[in-house]
Design a protein around this nucleic acid. Structure first.
Lengths: 337, 337
DNA sequence: GATCTTCTTAAAAACGTTTTAACGACGATG
DNA sequence: CATCGTCGTTAAAACGTTTTTAAGAAGATC
């Protein structure tokens, strides 16, 4: 009853076979005769045996776990990604070890160490610091790595990302099409690749429309990318006097804060100022003035990344590394007109 | 560099000691002389050794991982809990294995099986199905279990929860204090304990104020608890004719949907109808008419649950099981007046 | 009836760590 | 001088699987 931890040995004894046979039933059922197999399966059920993962991976040389390191588990974007990852992993019988780097390079490094200790089969990571070297060390250890929401620079690495330049362009061309002349880009630190890329896209859209980006676009960079920062940005903008015709926020949390800040100050959206966010999180459509946004296939991102990773693990020979780039999509709602 | 797995043996060889000594340096540094210890530590660094978790837990009989099974990783409430869990686990060098039950009993069961295979040290779970028996099986296997957001019925079990009856009372007495006569309770399935308890609290508050709950309270039960359902509830309410004075939603996602539904129909909040939600998720304060809500110490829930769990694991003898019940808190914002 | 296949099963050797019991060295104690 | 702890270290035995190699049984071929 207590601490019993039924082992393969006891199963074997009860079924009247050797431990090796039980192992075969577990891992290569087709190799063992029908009659003995059912006898063993019955013994497993009767004794409530569950395979010892540690012993198994120690001997087999690989575990059935993957590591997932995200930048902010509190952001619905990453939550959706995580849900996709968990889905696929669970379908294939893999366990997901979760690590939250909080954008902190040290914390990220610690997560990777934990993953290495657990001898995970592979790692899914949205890199926060530029821990590229650490990732290479993992690969030397035989741990596959897939970059999530971050295109790989090298061809020997899988990655899944969404084109942020296109996304930035989509957002800004849409704003231009509503008649906006002066546009503000509210963003997080431009050291974050996503923020920088979306800016590039924005500038391209302006250039393509024959505007001077330096003239038509004002950047407002905040240190965080949450609703609070968005509202602060709104206050800053309003205090600054002349409002832009439209605001493009680098993510929906910023945009929701911006929306609130504007409305509180009596600025009508979209009448006075148009507003567009990025990510199309669930709450974007639920806000009172529903938010136009750039949709990313978030859930899909997680799913595909995991499929890629597990394919690399299960078919190391036939596996071809892929750098997948999804295209974002414009979603027009009430906040732009 | 080297393809893989530097073992404790090679470290021992390089440091000129036995494997046992290396293990001691790793696990009981105080037992080994200063001089040899530093020699070993140097060898570990030089060789880039990282301990093999599987081998370690196989021999030691316990791992450094905990399992976390939540009902909906997409709900900010659970995300906050998960963040708290991850924080504490990470501080103590534990890895978190994430499972998402999606409210599905079968999926939950599968998660528990994965946890059992991985021989996690303990399990944190917000039960979805009534898999109590399964949980007992885990305990028989020596795996501690802490219930999260669900009070334990028995004294031999740790649990962390928030008093939902009190929460329901808080919400409804506040609505009454604003002068509301007729109140609608928009909820998920009443089979969900949280929903049922909040209803009980609501009725108590009415009774305490001398009202007849059957008269003053109308229940609107939806099958899901997201923003979409909230908006549907609003449409239903509006189509039904006579509006209540106030609406109490069983969670903030429902409330946000309700808010949108009301405003779209030209119903002013809080002028015509007061509205209060539950959970106080971040987006509650970011919505245009900011949402009054019942705050739960969500992050804390995750932290305390994990501390309890790890205490039970690390000090099995001195550990006293606790059923912790937090008190919720009323947060008044613009949606109630 | 002996020899060769084929198909199953058994036996044993790993995997990398932790742990126990034993050991030698060295002072301190009687 | 013998005895006793103490301290730091080691050798070797686990832990529960998987995998490889060998062996046994049944059936087919000559």
């Amino acid at each position: 009853m207590h601490m019993s931890s039924v082992s393969i040995k006891e199963v074997a004894a009860r079924a009247g076979v050797s431990p090796g046979t039980v192992s075969n039933v577990l891992n290569r059922p087709e190799k063992v005769a029908e009659s003995t197999r059912s006898r063993v399966e019955e013994a497993i059920r009767d004794l409530g045996f569950v395979r010892h993962g540690s012993a198994s991976s120690l001997r087999a040389g690989h575990s059935r776990t993957v590591g997932l390191s995200v930048i902010d588990i509190g952001n619905p974007f990453f939550t959706d990604v995580a849900a996709g990852v968990e889905e696929v992993a669970s379908e294939r019988g893999y366990a997901v070890i979760l690590g939250n780097s909080s954008g902190d390079r040290l914390k990220e490094e610690r997560n990777l160490l934990v993953f290495a200790e657990q001898r995970v089969r592979g790692v899914l990571i949205t890199p926060a610091g530029a821990n590229l070297a650490k990732l290479d060390q993992l690969k030397e250890r035989g741990i596959s790595v897939v970059l999530v929401d971050h295109p790989a620079e090298r061809a020997d690495q899988c990655s899944v990302a969404v084109n942020d330049i296109t996304g930035g362009s989509l957002a800004v061309s849409h704003l231009l099409s509503t008649g906006a002349e002066r546009i503000a880009y509210v963003t997080g630190p431009l050291t974050i690749r996503q923020c920088a890329d979306r800016l590039i896209g924005a500038e391209r859209a302006l250039a393509a429309a024959g505007r001077d980006p330096g003239e038509a676009l004002e950047e407002i960079a905040m240190s965080a990318m949450n609703a609070r920062s968005g509202q602060q940005a709104a206050e800053k903008m309003i205090a600054g006097g002349r409002l832009p015709d439209a605001v493009f926020c680098a993510n929906d949390l910023l945009a929701l804060g911006m929306l609130r800040g504007l409305l509180q100050a009596g600025v009508r959206v979209p009448r006075d100022v148009s507003l567009i966010g990025y990510d199309d999180i669930d709450f974007a459509s639920a806000s009172t003035v529903s938010l136009s946004s750039i949709r990313q296939p978030t859930h899909r991102l997680g799913r595909v990344a995991t499929e890629l990773l597990l394919d690399e693990c299960d078919n190391p020979d036939s596996h071809a590394h892929q750098q997948i780039m999804f295209q974002p999509e414009l979603v027009i709602r009430e906040s732009t007109l």
